[in-house]
Nucleic acid binder design. Structure first.
Lengths: 122, 122
DNA sequence: TCGAAGGTTCACATCGATGTCAACGTCAAG
DNA sequence: CTTGACGTTGACATCGATGTGAACCTTCGA
């Protein structure tokens, strides 16, 4: 599919799809006329990218993370440099911390909302 | 404590502590000489703010969220406008989505790292 | 008393993500 | 053949978070 359809399907402006490509997060093939051609599976990838961006990861990190979340890429297990492994471990730990922080605050909000609701019943 | 010590304790530059105040996330009292004076408990608050910022929440949202995560503020349950309640529910749901996305990707990274390690043992 | 350390405000710079616009090429339908 | 929808690249603008520096005030210890 071309960029317009991908944009419609994902709700992400074409501007950003091009930006993600520039950042190395998305690599559509080019048609003879120069148009970008996106495989269907890239819809999911775009959503994954959005999720990670929304969760606060910079594109630089997402670029490292994406390959290891691709099933087919699990084959490339062996060519992971020590450096990359270290980076990924650090990133995993940061994500743990973020998850914990988010969860704690979400729980606090949820508890608060429950109290509000309880108070309104009276 | 004054801003320098808070900065040392939290590792956050004074510039940002002032910025958080400007954004309404932190409200130190002022000493006679105009210096900011931070209560001890604000150390925790700063860390909470950092966690939420790192998790991708903008200061605008954090400002709404913080009050409901303060225990003493649970007393103010009654003065929650419908609007705020809706905003908080939406925010809670977004946080849910972020947590899920982060967890999925962290799990993928963790699985990848385990594979790498297994491959290296051989 | 003087200087260093740390505080204040204000302004401007930077950086990443995103919006917007200009100038132009491609393609399908009337 | 032309028009309109859609694509291309490139430049510049904006917005939020953060860095940096100037000009100035306060406190404290030599």
């Amino acid at each position: 599919m071309r960029i317009g359809e991908l944009s419609r399907r994902t709700g992400i402006p074409t501007r950003l799809l091009r930006y993600y490509e520039e950042q190395g997060l998305l690599t559509p093939v080019r048609l003879a006329n120069g148009y970008r051609d996106y495989a269907d599976r890239l819809v999911d990838r775009v959503e994954q990218i959005r999720g990670l961006l929304d969760a606060g990861l910079p594109t630089r990190v997402i670029r490292e993370v994406l390959p290891c979340t691709d099933n087919p890429c699990t084959i490339t297990v062996t060519d992971a440099s020590d450096e990359l492994v270290g980076l990924l471990e650090a990133e995993r730990d940061k994500m743990d911390a973020r998850i914990e922080c988010l969860a704690r605050n979400r729980d606090a909000i949820a508890a608060y909302l429950r109290q509000v609701e309880a108070a309104r019943k009276r």
